[in-house]
Design a protein around this nucleic acid. Structure first.
Lengths: 222, 222
DNA sequence: CGCTCGGTTGACAACCGTCAAAGCGTGTGG
DNA sequence: CCACACGCTTTGACGGTTGTCAACCGAGCG
């Protein structure tokens, strides 16, 4: 089942126009359950999307069967506009009740032709995605497992954007983290306990942590 | 010395308007020597750029001293438009005589406001960069050294876009490839000899190769 | 001629992936 | 209410791959 069928059906509802919204009037919102597909690889690109609540993963499954997560999508993130005719990756909700806005692609493009301000907004959004992907390459480029996990935790702390010292929520499982960092689950788990034992972070439950020593976290190179 | 000083000085010359050019009239071309800086990390973003000839590397130097190459820039590639106020990475020419066109940033944005066609072109160019970066993430996500190097060779073969069976030129050194793939130089060298011994590729000199068995190259997973 | 730089090959140790097992929390069914 | 099963996480043991250190080769150049 294609994602597009989600929009315009009973699950969808017209979003109210809010100031600061890119395309409030066109947006249609859909809600997804944990693990549910938002769109599939090689499906036609009929919408642009924005995460409103929850979390999602963009990924592909290699020929060898390994799942590679290309990036995590958190509230405020736009996605789906890079692909031309078909999507290059699949996107799935990570949490129950993940909310995603969809914008019909053709109408957005048409609108942008007549509205320079909108055009700039779109360029700004795509630029933000490029910056995110470049940061991601730097994380993947790290050598040691502890360094990768540290960089990942810092990224999540920044993107969830709480006040410093606030607890950070990890919406995804260890498996997701492993497929994101190209590590095995076991190595991710070990790296987390290592960081905790060093007093760099404090795990509060399995999906929540607090940074105790930010400098040490940034300096973790192994 | 900032890159911007390159443009508008004696080294620069006004590019002729050619059909199909994005912004032929605004373009100013500069030539760089091997290893010369095109712009520095944290320098103000005054231009957008396009590689006309030669090759360049975009990179950053981590706190631990390791150089991470974010991507290689080949003829036809646009770059420098993702950063907002300052560049997040440095860019250096890899080859002597690398030619780069610069477009003044403010004037391009102003032009795009009035020209929907140009706006679409820019979105298309940024979308292409996103696709390139996502492909890059997949390469970095590979596990084995032979797999990474294989994927890299395939990427170079595609981007240089010769007819199948044609020899492919590698403009960059083994060190560049290593910093691109997050491997050591020695491992890159070993992976190349492994691929050659298996009859998958044929090295012709150190910076030139030919694909003998494309299927095997694509299937290299280790 | 001798230097440096880029590339290749070898030896060894460290790190990470794999296999295995056990703990833990949650939901379901008896 | 308890028993059980299942998914997720953690920890342990072991082997393979890769980074490090070292040596050598060849080309270009002063």
């Amino acid at each position: 089942m294609l994602a597009s069928s989600q929009f315009g059906t009973d699950q969808a509802s017209v979003a109210p126009r809010r100031p600061g919204d890119l395309l409030g009037g066109l947006a249609v919102t859909a809600r997804y359950a944990r693990g549910q597909e938002i769109y599939a690889q090689d499906s036609p690109t009929e919408h642009w999307y924005r995460v409103v609540g929850g979390a999602a993963r963009r990924f592909t499954v290699q020929t060898n069967g390994r799942r590679q997560i290309v990036d995590f999508l958190l509230p405020g993130d736009h996605f789906g506009f890079a692909s031309r005719a078909v999507h290059h990756f699949s996107v799935e909700a990570i949490l129950d009740g993940t909310l995603v806005e969809g914008y019909p692609r053709g109408r957005v493009e048409a609108l942008a032709d007549g509205d320079p301000h909108l055009g700039r907004d779109i360029r700004s959004v795509t630029a933000a995605e490029i910056v995110r992907l470049q940061a991601r390459i730097l994380i993947l480029g790290r050598i040691g497992s502890v360094g990768k996990v540290s960089a990942f935790l810092l990224e999540m702390a920044e993107r969830s954007a709480g006040r410093p010292g606030t607890a950070v929520i990890l919406p995804m499982s260890r498996y997701d983290i492993a497929d994101y960092l190209t590590l095995s689950v076991e190595t991710v788990s070990r790296a987390l306990t290592t960081l905790q034992q060093r007093g760099v972070i404090r795990l509060q439950g399995k999906r929540r942590f607090r940074i105790s020593d930010r400098d040490a976290l940034e300096d973790s190179d192994e």
